[in-house]
Design a protein around this nucleic acid. Structure first.
Lengths: 301, 301
DNA sequence: CCAACTCCATCAAATTTACTGATAGTCTAA
DNA sequence: TTAGACTATCAGTAAATTTGATGGAGTTGG
């Protein structure tokens, strides 16, 4: 027979109430049950917790030290029970969200902050991937939601559209392509293209729509470094309009006059499986991301 | 019926072993006992911990999250049992040591460091008081040991002597008293005396042996500030020789030619009650302080 | 100083909880 | 397809906890 929680609960109440009898009363138990539990605890731990030599049972220093540790255990027990309660109320234990690196992070982060501030019991994990890597990770990790530009539809996948995002094909002001007109694809391929590194291992299969497939392609690790590369005149590439609005206005980055079109718009999609209903956290995340994206779009335009 | 530790212990073993049957084997229990405990836990928490739809019982995400929290609880339970074991081995839950501020702190602190490094289970508390305040706090707090210059003997107090310490009556080089010879008490009383503030409230009764009782006495809060006051020429006062050895050698502080004697030696005493034997920590502290004081004395001389 | 009260320990009996051993149904692997 | 591994369930049993009663001891307030 080992240490059990009930005995610690009794100990705690006895100390709070000041006597075995009062504790028995508060716990709606017979006084002998309290004596039994305390005695059991003392036997188990082989420590004298109460000094019975005087009228009132007095807590010994060892008893007090054990009580303090015991309270910690009770707190942890309460935490576990509370966690289980949350689950019963419809909260998921955790929620994994995979997002496409080419999408703006700001609204996602704002949405996450709202969730964190609410101190919800669900542990949220956000994983950023690029291109094909997004859905790959979504499936591999059995994530609960993904935020993508595009996806391979499945029988149990539902997609919620977010406000449209526009990509612009740009280069630095002093880049060779900047001053040309009606550029054709071959012309483009003579120059270095900057693109985002695809974290999917099977990315050799096909090219992303925003990748031309020239000989010299520089893979960057994110849009911030891609933007830096563009600004340096390292090459040309597609950038979300909201990330380079200032530079386009200032003229430091120039929209290329590509014959295939220098703008490409798409609608980010919030995709999640329908075979299992979203929990409370999932619903909240869905709502928050939707709301934050709408706000974001408004701030940009 | 509430959450109990045993069920969490079983859960942990089941997950470690990978099946109910193996867990039963390891715990030397029937397999049905494992089923029973897990089912009980699930009923208590109202959470499906294992998914039995497939051949092997599979841990659900909620089950995993609860398991992780449960392990923390088990750790805390183990901590409590270990603590109780330590008590059974003779360790005290805590040890309060009161020391006289006029004694050198260095060897005490070194001794404490040794104890801390050993990671003993006893929580040690050191309280620094001055003069009568030392024994007062020792008695008030029912401390386990005090380190004093002098004490009021009692029926259940034992004192262990430490190496002798010497106090010197000094003033700054440019202080009026510094250049005088064969100074008498009245002469002394014309000047400001620096002394340590007595933390005992009943200190009005009598004067400490190292306090002359002149009209102008400055009470300092410790020897370091007292030394600073002496150096500034604020007044004269008694200082432990080991704290001003450098200044005496350099001549910035001067030993006064007081007719009552400019040096006063005493033997610090380690006092503790004999009605209850010292625990392991007490024995260790006794040994360490003794040893550190002997070392200290050697380093000074 | 006494009577009434509160404190806690202890005991037998009752109740609840935990476990065993057996059985059955399902799944896996050879 | 068969042997083996897996878990659920059930009845019976063992162990634990609780109750209610009792008693001794200390406290409190006339």
């Amino acid at each position: 027979m080992r240490l059990d929680i009930e005995a610690l609960r009794v100990l705690d109440v006895v100390i709070q109430e000041g006597s075995f009898a009062k504790a028995a009363n508060r716990l709606h138990k017979a006084q002998s049950a309290i004596s039994y539990q305390i005695k059991k605890l003392e036997d188990q731990l082989d420590v004298t917790i109460f000094d019975r030599s005087s009228y009132r049972a007095e807590l010994t220093p060892k008893g007090k030290a054990l009580w303090i540790e015991g309270k910690r255990l009770l707190e942890q027990a309460a935490r576990i029970e509370k966690l289980a309660d949350h689950y019963s109320e419809g909260w998921e234990p955790n929620f994994d969200l995979v997002i496409d690196a080419s999408l703006p992070m700001e609204p996602v982060m704002k949405a996450m902050k709202v969730l964190v501030d609410r101190e919800i019991p669900t542990k949220i994990q956000v994983k950023v991937e690029a291109m094909r890597g997004v859905q790959k990770r979504f499936e591999q990790d059995q994530a609960h939601m993904m935020l993508v530009k595009d996806y391979q539809p499945g029988p149990h996948l539902k997609a919620v559209p977010l406000p449209q995002i526009t990509f612009v094909l740009v280069a630095a002001r002093d880049h060779a392509l900047a001053s040309l007109h009606n550029i054709d694809l071959n012309h483009l391929l003579e120059h270095v293209e900057l693109t985002i590194h695809d974290s999917s291992e099977t990315s050799t299969d096909s090219l992303d729509e925003h990748q031309f497939g020239g000989d010299r392609v520089f893979y960057m690790h994110g849009f911030m470094s891609k933007k830096a590369g563009l600004m340096m005149g390292l090459g040309f590439g597609w950038m979300p309009d909201f990330l380079i609005a200032d530079e386009l206005a200032a003229g430091t980055l120039v929209e290329l006059d590509y014959e295939g079109g220098s703008r490409s718009s798409f609608t980010p999609l919030l995709v999640y499986p329908t075979d299992q209903p979203l929990g409370k956290a999932g619903e909240l995340i869905l709502d928050e991301i939707l709301s934050e994206f709408e706000q974001f779009k408004q701030n940009v335009q």
